[in-house]
Simulated scan of single mutants.
Amino acid sequence: MNSIKLKAHAKINLGLDVVRRREDGYHEVRMIMQTIGLYDKLTINRTNNNSIVINTNLHYLPTDENNLVYKAVSLIQREYHIEQGVYINLEKKIPVAAGMAGGSTDAATALYGMSRLFDLNLKKPELMKLGLRLGADVPYCIMRGTALSEGIGEILTPLPSFPACQVLIVKPGLSVSTKYVYENLKLDETTKHPDINGILTCIRTRDLYGAIGLFGNVLENVTIKEYPVIGEIKDKMTEWGAIGALMSGSGPTVFGLFDDIKKAEKAFYQFKVSELGKQVFLTDLYQPYY
């Protein structure tokens, strides 16, 4: 095999709670992660030299060691003494700095692709262990599907598939610093935490409406206060037919879940012509193939 083409799927958070801030500065979380149909495309080609060359459709993305895909490939090369290089074409569709793990899923897919391309035959647990060295979200992006994420994001428990529905993604024309959001998150006795255990119960009993009724993201307390347009998008999402809407990750992307494809398509076109969303996508939930 000299070339491999792969899809790197985005994620949303069906629930996100921050339990506490640790002494090392990291935050302990309890999150319910879900892969969706929106994806980036990675094409990895073997070359005859030992260099790593990345080409992307976004001019502002780094293509050197500051890119997570570059770091993933370099890690595989070092760990498994691979002397050949690669040329990678990265076609980005997942919004950048949007709370959808775009960089992490690209890195996860690069790890998997390198394993396939160079006949390493690494199993999922091995890939996840490597992925943790690149970032807390990377192991989940290797696992994919529906999962409970705990610790700093590295403790993962697979869950039954979330009931099928349409997913409308709306990202306003701004980017959010995850570091800023966590640094400004205040956790005290007045903090309203989402009912993660309740959502887990609803997922296990396939209660779509019960789960959506318990959706929550504690980081909205910071991000929506700083960027009120996120709250406006959530309001419009439900007004235009979503059975639930939530900010994903640290934002600013908002997703809405729909149980009616016609309502989802109508809301998609309404957001496309509005000034609220710069990037708008209509997709569905996705379960992993590896």
Rank of each mutant, 00 (worst) to 15 (best):
G103F: 06
H193F: 09
R116L: 14
L90R: 05
N121K: 15
T109I: 03
N184C: 07
S104I: 02
D119G: 04
Y70T: 13
Y182S: 03
T109P: 00
A97Y: 09
K171Q: 04
L156F: 08
V69P: 13
P194E: 06
P194N: 08
L156M: 12
L159V: 02
I88N: 09
T63Q: 14
P172H: 01
Y60V: 12
L185M: 06
G113S: 06
I155D: 11
N89G: 08
I155N: 07
L68R: 03
Y60M: 09
D119M: 10
L159R: 02
R78Y: 08
Q166T: 01
Y112T: 11
M128P: 08
D64L: 11
V69K: 08
Y87N: 15
E91Y: 11
M114T: 13
E83A: 15
T157E: 13
G153C: 08
E150V: 03
R116K: 14
L130G: 01
V176G: 05
A107P: 12
E91C: 08
E150W: 08
L134N: 12
P125A: 12
L130T: 05
A107E: 09
M100A: 07
E154N: 03
I169Y: 05
G173D: 15
K186N: 04
K129Y: 11
S175A: 14
L156P: 15
I82V: 10
I155S: 04
G102Q: 10
G153A: 11
L130P: 08
M114Y: 11
V167D: 02
K129R: 15
V181M: 05
N197R: 11
L61F: 14
R133H: 13
E154G: 06
Y140N: 07
G99R: 02
Q77M: 12
V176S: 08
I203K: 06
V86R: 06
I76M: 15
P163S: 05
L61D: 12
L174Q: 05
P163H: 09
P194G: 10
G131N: 04
S115G: 09
A101Y: 03
K179T: 13
D64N: 15
M100H: 07
G153Q: 09
A72Y: 12
I155P: 03
I76S: 04
I169P: 00
S175R: 10
I142N: 03
M128W: 04
S74G: 05
G131F: 00
P172L: 06
K129E: 15
K71P: 02
K129P: 06
L120K: 00
A108L: 05
G145K: 01
K71D: 02
S177V: 13
D195T: 07
D137I: 03
N66S: 04
I196M: 11
D106Q: 05
A108Y: 00
I196Y: 07
E91M: 10
L200R: 05
K123T: 14
V138G: 02
A98Q: 01
V86Y: 03
G135M: 01
L200Q: 03
A136Q: 04
S104W: 00
I152W: 01
T178M: 02
T146M: 08
L111Y: 12
N66C: 05
L168D: 01
H193C: 02
T63I: 13
T109W: 00
I203A: 06
F162I: 07
E65T: 09
E65I: 13
L120E: 01
E154K: 05
I203M: 07
K179Q: 10
L90T: 06
K179M: 05
E65D: 15
I152Y: 00
A136C: 03
S149Y: 04
L120M: 02
P139H: 04
M114E: 11
